[in-house]
Design a protein around this nucleic acid. Structure first.
Lengths: 148, 148
DNA sequence: TTCTATGCAAAAGCTTTGCAAATCA
DNA sequence: TGATTTGCAAAGCTTTTGCATAGAA
């Protein structure tokens, strides 16, 4: 699947007259190896640990391209910084976020997906994508008291 | 309704040993007069136009309190800056955002609300709130060609 | 070879914060 | 009067950008 993603990305770059560089390969590799959300600092840290040299600037620039290509999604949890996750090869999902411990649970729900299409139709919008984050308290944190 | 909100805010402040100041009143007043989203610069601009003197710092600080009190909601459209909207006295709603012109349409949908409760129950989460933003192209922008 | 990409450091936005002076209860 | 607030400016964060050098095709 990583290979498929790589091919797609190469094609995407070609259509724009851009190059498939060492750095872009490293980044795509990592992005499709992590099965969770990550931010730019996370990636930077992973690269440092693995002695892969990629600058913060290149990470930002490549992630933008990956998002534009549709292979990667940008997720905003309202923390003032962006998270990313690979999207290619996955069905769309939404997030259940624990406000206490930060745990994120992914879920998919066809009923909600369908309703969104209907709502767009009603308003004449052409649906592109959506972000649904549900915030709450996870079971563990509920037990651990601070039922704040 | 603005008066009710004001009372609620006063109570909220009192429980925390905080004061209901001139600035906080001006801000709450404005926030409950605007029936749309706004960001901090918007507020600042409105105050300047009305010759109300409130600093940017106080706006940030008071908005945080308003959000904590539950009277105001913070909305994130992934633009790298926060939007706000008053919430007290309104039923919850979600957003349909046009990627082309930025137009925001509010909608409420009981089916989606209900499904979210179910999903939380399934995962043992205590639901707190959610944010659902659907991005797409509005009817006008679809007509105006760039069906990008 | 030519055009694009990388890295670095500086710049840019938005938001937060330390501190002295002002204000509320 | 005593504690909280305000405004200002500085600082903090994340993200973007200009430019010289390095690297794809």
């Amino acid at each position: 699947m990583k290979e498929e993603a790589m091919e797609k990305f190469k094609k995407f770059l070609k259509t724009r007259g851009l190059k498939f560089t060492r750095e872009r390969k490293i980044i795509l590799d990592q992005v499709f190896s992590v099965h969770d959300h990550f931010d730019v600092e996370d990636l930077l840290y992973m690269f440092r640990k693995r002695k892969k040299q990629v600058s913060r600037a290149s990470i930002y620039r490549t992630l933008s391209l990956l998002v534009e290509s549709g292979l990667v999604g940008k997720v905003d949890f309202g923390e003032g910084r962006a998270y990313y996750e690979h999207v290619f090869g996955h069905v769309h999902h939404d997030h259940l976020v624990c406000k206490e411990c930060g745990q994120v649970v992914q879920f998919e729900d066809q009923v909600i997906e369908k309703r969104q299409q209907d709502i767009c139709k009603e308003h004449g919008f052409r649906l592109d994508y959506h972000t649904l984050n549900i915030f709450g308290i996870c079971p563990e944190c509920q037990k651990n008291g601070e039922n704040n």
